[in-house]
Design a protein around this nucleic acid. Structure first.
Lengths: 219, 219
DNA sequence: ATATATATGTTGTATTTACAACGAAAGTGA
DNA sequence: TCACTTTCGTTGTAAATACAACATATATAT
């Protein structure tokens, strides 16, 4: 656990909490560390929504499958990312999504009730944790709105350009990499992969953008 | 202000706070009451994201306009609803959306900093407010995920059925009303209104559902 | 009651997409 | 190196959509 303190200090959930206090706090929260192999379920749809997780190493994806078996990538998770917090904080008892490890992945698992229930030892931290959690959930909220803004576009072309424009803005330059391969980008945009490739080719032909693998340049 | 205490007691932001304390708390928060006419902007895109609002009477919509002028209805707001909280709680300084009154509407406006900054008078309430806010933001988060789940469907038919299935589940029965007219439903689902009407007619012909105005019945 | 405005349903067409099938390219492991 | 797998681009076709234009129905005001 101690080994992860430097990483955990960078996690937004523990923002403004000193490294010295963090170790004690983790004990107080009964934080557990678990390891998962590639494709293994960290959380499964239908599980009780009482835990939040933090990626300590590896990668994972939050996915939602519909009736027809189409897998919808809700988000990609990398080191330091928090997941499950929205459902734990909301009036939701059962998880409607799964979290799947895409590599060998180590996570820290915390029971949400431990976060919001003050205790005799370290209750001074709890309010700070709740406040941090609020910022985190609100930021995810904003990101979800942003995603809705992207996928609300009617055509594949508009979705692509809308998504890439946001990525370029976040990168601060016209050349940038995205965290998806073609299939994952297609899933994120809710379009067909081949149609996506097709449209990317057309955009490249028209000189609107250049791309190579997952690196793009808007012109 | 006093007149609205009974209503405010039912607002989730003030959950678990006694009516007696509420009046004092509102003073402490420097809550302001404002009135807007139909189509008037309560918040405008580009405004500073420092306020949260509560609908005291009337109706409003959170809308987002894209480059092409397409207006996207992010949400409909009725009495008791809170708005602006996600942006106020997140690391967002400027509002990316507008809030428009769809009727004569009275709102209560609170500076978010007043909520999270403890004061000498009523700081015992602040932690409770933050905790309530967390639940609210997390619930909105879940709703946004739900909306993404609906609009991620590839065809208008699937979007309609997905949306109506959720509404039926929330209503607890197969017959229910929705808070949208055709155009608003089309905007929510990000499809063409006439295509929506067309598809609804087909579904009705096939005996999948019945509808009259904004009342639907799944068969 | 009548005129007017608003909301909703219908139809045809051009555009766009999903889907399937295939081939090329790049990566992986023996 | 070679076989094998995964990823990506391309093409054709059937299906679905957006859009426009119009018809019908409902609501509202005078």
């Amino acid at each position: 656990m101690i080994n992860y303190i430097p990483l955990l200090k960078t996690v937004p959930l523990f923002f403004d909490i000193e490294a010295n206090d963090l170790s004690e706090l983790l004990n107080c929260l009964s934080a557990k560390i678990k390891t998962f192999q590639t494709q293994e379920s960290i959380f499964s749809e239908g599980d009780s929504a009482e835990f939040v997780g933090i990626i300590l190493s590896g990668e994972a994806q939050i996915v939602m499958d519909d009736y027809y078996g189409n897998r919808n990538i809700v988000a990609s998770l990398t080191v330091g990312h928090l997941f499950g917090e929205a459902f734990a904080c909301a009036d939701v008892s059962i998880l409607p999504v799964s979290v799947i490890a895409t590599n060998e992945t180590i996570i820290m698992q915390i029971n949400y009730k431990k976060i919001i229930t003050t205790c005799s030892n370290c209750c001074t931290f709890h309010n700070k944790l709740i406040y941090n959690m609020l910022r985190i959930v609100a930021n995810k909220n904003v990101m979800l709105n942003q995603k809705i803004d992207v996928i609300s576009k009617r055509t594949t072309r508009e979705k692509i350009l809308s998504y890439l424009a946001i990525q370029a803005k976040q990168a601060g330059q016209n050349s940038f990499s995205i965290p998806f391969n073609r299939q994952e980008l297609a899933d994120y945009l809710f379009v067909d992969r081949s149609a996506l490739s097709n449209e990317l080719s057309k955009l490249s032909d028209k000189g609107v953008l250049h791309f190579h693998k997952n690196t793009f340049e808007l012109l």
